[in-house]
């Protein structure tokens, strides 16, 4: 099996602050790869670089064999993105939203129409498909937001905290959906700080903190390595128990970033 993603020394700095710090990474084709890390660890920044939304300050990466800077358009054709914020227009209805994004991928006509209906059915929104999505509940919106990334059948799917702020039913639904989505050899990169989610879904996880990857392994491998019964213990062991956003914590973070 080939590699879906390879990163070499991928780095992103905002001014003097290093958000992603020389990340080397390989994700295999067809696997669900969990990116775990506390708030501000650099997960989203890493995803934004891999999805061509942000240029790396240093280093490079290949997604689906294409360089994320020099072959950005090729990368864009084969990736799907569920970002932290909804990628949907609140005033438009479900059909209009999906039709719009489908056309951006060069789809059209009957093919697009059928695809849109199929996706809407997949997340059980048929009855609401002509209502502006601004009136949807968060769960409905997020379901639509996830399938929005599937219009063009992307080979590689990035999910940035897809279950954040959802109720248990919606979380269950989205997780089952993610399991379904891997069928057909799709690669999925999933960021989360919910440990059950990572454990349930991921083939391998990377724990990232202060912009650096601390470990990469299967959930079972990690638990065995640290001699604990769940991933949360591994996570706290590695990233510490202190709050992230306390002012006194920021100073050493920056200092580490500069080394």
């Amino acid at each position: 099996m080939g590699l879906a993603i390879e990163a070499f020394g991928l780095t992103k700095r905002f001014g003097s602050f290093t958000a992603v710090d020389h990340v080397d990474l390989s994700v295999k084709e067809g696997e669900i790869f969990g990116l775990l890390g506390p708030n501000g660890a650099g997960k989203s920044t890493l995803v934004r670089m891999l999805t061509t939304l942000m240029r790396p300050t240093e280093g490079t990466a290949k997604v689906g064999g294409y360089d994320i800077v020099n072959q950005a358009d090729e990368v864009r054709k084969i990736i799907g993105l569920v970002a932290e914020k909804l990628i949907l227009y609140p005033r438009l209805n479900a059909v209009e939203n999906l039709m719009f994004f489908g056309r951006l991928y060069g789809m059209g006509g009957e093919e697009l129409r059928r695809k849109v209906d199929e996706l809407i059915e997949m997340v059980r929104l048929e009855r609401f498909k002509h209502f502006p999505i601004g009136g949807y509940s968060s769960g409905m919106r997020q379901r639509l937001n996830v399938v929005r990334a599937l219009l063009h059948d992307p080979k590689i799917l990035f999910l940035d905290e897809p279950t954040a702020m959802l109720d248990p039913q919606s979380i269950r639904f989205i997780r089952d959906l993610i399991k379904d989505l891997r069928k057909g050899g799709r690669t999925i990169i999933l960021t989360t700080h919910i440990m059950d989610e990572a454990e349930e879904l991921s083939d391998r996880v990377a724990i990232i903190d202060h912009g650096r990857i601390l470990v990469v392994d299967t959930p079972e491998g990690l638990k065995a390595r640290f001699g604990v019964s769940n991933l949360l213990e591994v996570f706290l062991e590695l990233t510490g128990r202190d709050l992230r956003d306390r002012a006194e914590n920021r100073v050493p973070i920056r200092a580490i970033g500069r080394v």
Binding site: K77, L88, R148
Partner: peptide, 13 residues
């Protein structure tokens, strides 16, 4: 701000 620009920018336009 609402994030929809990411959807456009991550597509091949």
């Amino acid at each position: 701000e609402q994030g929809t620009l990411d959807g456009i920018m991550s597509s091949p336009v």
